[in-house]
Design a protein around this nucleic acid. Structure first.
Length: 607
DNA sequence: GCCGTTTTCGGCCCGACTGTTTTCAGTCG
């Protein structure tokens, strides 16, 4: 690389890091976990192109253009694989060059320009940018100066002291990288909930169409809505397992068939996700479903109960321990009932006291997706969303919501360039649209930024003009515990703040939760009637289940929100509901299951 | 590369923090 090229490289790369980094995570996920929609497949491709372009020192605006197009296509409601050139170009951010590449991909399965970049930059170099604080520029330097093209090589180089000679890399950077590697490694073998779910549902649908398939569903941690998934368990019932096993192992894309038997087969998809299929006779369906749903500790408890009752529980059924006579096995209900328990919803099966409570017939009537009457945290293309207000609202109406809040970012995050005028103009448009959909009311709100001292963006007079305010931590994640606690407490005490958005600000596998005294924060929420969000984004799931259980003890209310940045992602609310279920929440605990008049009173209590 | 009541070039997402420097590159939200 010449000096001049390097200079250009530096100035341009300086401006590209942020968004690339944010989406690299998503792109990586898509590669590991497979692609349910052609749109996501194309988006992942464009994102990869953007990443490689920025690593190779490509023009910053070009990098961003591919980035933007990737986001737009991922969030676009129509299937890109059915589009012609003109329709493609009607997607915002897609022009001639990108439309051509998309068409080339759909026609031939590859893009020459992307292949050329792949030849230039090993995939391991792109993987390096998944490490926090290590962006495209640093990854490029590491590769060019030291030939580092994988995380393992990077760790080795640090231990060998080889980074010391590279300008811009000091002791602190080494330490941060090692810490970041640790964080990413913990989640390396696991995928986000949506990735696993989409893959599982697609597969289940395909298997259900196979001749002789009597039943098919996903089980395991996915059925329990665990926050990340190690491998996907699929259970099917059939008299003759062979056709199902064949359909399973011969599907695309399979990288490797790791087991292929009569009862169980395992595959690894081309993106590294492991999927197990078990086929049982219909008569054993209930016992098998119970067994393969887990959790391990929950099952230890149920087997224990069986043992104490002179029974034996396995994936084949509930048997009399003495005679080996089958007692029951056809449905999960039968199995639980015969153990003296009501059926226990899978998200509760974590051995967190559900057995004892079930025995007393005191299981909570946990919140379900159909209880949700509206979404209270969503974005539009006015800030960092990709769908216009009208599309978001139309999709919300299709989902049957009784109310829907638009909460774009506030001026505190300068990148979004929010202004008073823009917020007021949006409000006017929201008021115009309100009533356009029968039975759905619109709320105009904002997602405020909680500053380092706990203050939020706008003065109280202005905030009073909003129907609803979510307030979230978006910066200064590393404050000392006491400072962070004071910060959150102050935000809760602000009478205009209704909901604390993604309260711990964690990004699963990427950024740890902020350090705060949660007991203190939850106590304050209860006192100030500030709801805690359960952010449904599969990258966040924040609050997480255990924090929800703790907060509930303080009498806090919750809001399950999608934080959708496109119309397509409004459907992601289900992952938040699953998390709320894991936190034992009922609809009484969740403010967006309440009727509009009750929600209004909660948001703006009469003084 | 995309986009345009500024129609065909020039602007596009800005500011702060961190770690490395000693004036700034890189990363992040």
């Amino acid at each position: 690389m010449t000096g001049a090229t390097r200079d250009r490289f530096r100035t341009l790369a300086a401006r590209t890091g942020g968004i690339a980094q944010r989406l690299a995570d998503r792109a990586h996920r898509d590669y590991r976990g497979g692609m349910a929609r052609p749109n996501d497949e194309v988006a992942a491709l464009l994102q990869e192109y953007s990443d490689l372009l920025s690593i190779s020192g490509g023009a910053a605006y070009k990098v961003r253009a591919y980035e933007k197009a990737a986001r737009a296509i991922s969030g676009h409601p129509q299937d890109v694989s059915a589009m012609d050139a003109d329709t493609l170009r009607s997607v915002p951010g897609v022009g001639k060059a990108i439309a051509d590449k998309v068409l080339e991909y759909l026609r031939t399965g590859s893009v020459r320009a992307l292949d050329a970049l792949r030849d230039e930059i090993p995939s391991g170099v792109r993987d390096l940018t998944a490490i926090p604080n290590l962006g495209p520029r640093k990854a490029a330097t590491l590769y060019q100066d030291l030939g580092i093209a994988s995380t393992d090589e990077l760790v080795e180089a640090i231990h060998a002291g080889r980074l010391r000679d590279i300008p811009g890399f000091g002791a602190k950077t080494e330490e941060n990288i090692l810490h970041g590697v640790e964080l990413t490694r913990q989640s390396e073998e696991r995928v986000h909930l949506d990735t696993a779910m989409e893959q599982a549902e697609e597969l289940v649908e395909r298997l259900l169409s196979v001749d002789g398939c009597q039943r098919c569903t996903h089980a395991g941690s996915l059925r329990r809505f665990a926050e990340t998934i190690g491998d996907v368990d699929i259970l099917a019932a059939a008299g003759e397992p062979r056709p199902l096993m064949d359909a399973f192992t011969e599907q695309e894309p399979v990288a490797e068939v790791t087991a292929a038997g009569e009862k169980k087969s395992s595959i690894r998809t081309t993106d590294g996700l492991r999927i197990d299929l078990r086929v049982v006779p219909l008569s054993a369906w209930g016992a098998a479903l119970q067994y393969f749903t887990g959790s391990r500790t929950h099952n230890i408890r149920t087997r224990e109960i069986a043992g104490n009752a002179g029974l034996k529980l396995s994936e084949y059924g509930l048997f009399d321990a003495e005679t080996d006579q089958l007692v029951v096995s056809e449905t999960e209900e039968e199995v639980y009932n015969r153990l003296g328990l009501p059926w226990i919803p899978p998200p509760l099966r974590e051995d967190r006291g559900e057995i004892e409570v079930a025995r007393k017939r005191e299981l909570p009537d946990i919140v379900s997706e159909t209880d949700i009457r509206g979404d209270l945290h969503t974005h539009t293309d006015l800030t960092d969303g990709v769908s216009p207000l009208e599309d978001m609202v139309a999709t919300a109406a299709e989902r049957g919501y009784a109310y829907y809040a638009v909460t774009d970012h506030a001026p505190g995050l300068p990148m979004h360039r929010m202004t008073d005028e823009k917020a007021l103009a949006q409000r006017e448009r929201v008021r115009e649209l309100d009533g356009a959909y029968r039975g759905m009311r619109l709320l105009h709100g904002s997602e405020l930024n909680i500053g380092p001292d706990g203050a939020v963006d706008w003065p109280e007079e202005f905030l009073n003009g909003f129907d609803i305010c979510v307030a979230s931590v978006h910066t200064h994640f590393n404050q000392p515990r006491e400072e962070m606690t004071r910060r959150l407490v102050r935000a809760c005490e602000n009478p205009c703040v209704n909901i604390i958005g993604h309260p711990t600000a964690r990004l699963i596998g990427r950024r740890p939760a902020i350090d705060a005294d949660l007991d203190e924060v939850f106590r304050t929420c209860a006192r100030t009637r500030t709801a805690l969000e359960i952010n449904a984004s599969p990258h966040r799931l924040d609050l997480r289940d255990e924090d929800i259980l703790l907060a509930k003890k303080y009498g806090v209310r919750f809001a399950v929100n999608s934080d959708a940045h496109s119309a397509v992602h409004l459907a992601g609310l289900r992952y938040g509901v699953g998390t709320a279920q894991r936190g034992w929440l009922t609809s009484e605990d969740v403010i967006n299951t309440w009727p509009m008049h009750r929600l209004r009173r909660f948001l703006r209590p009469p003084s």
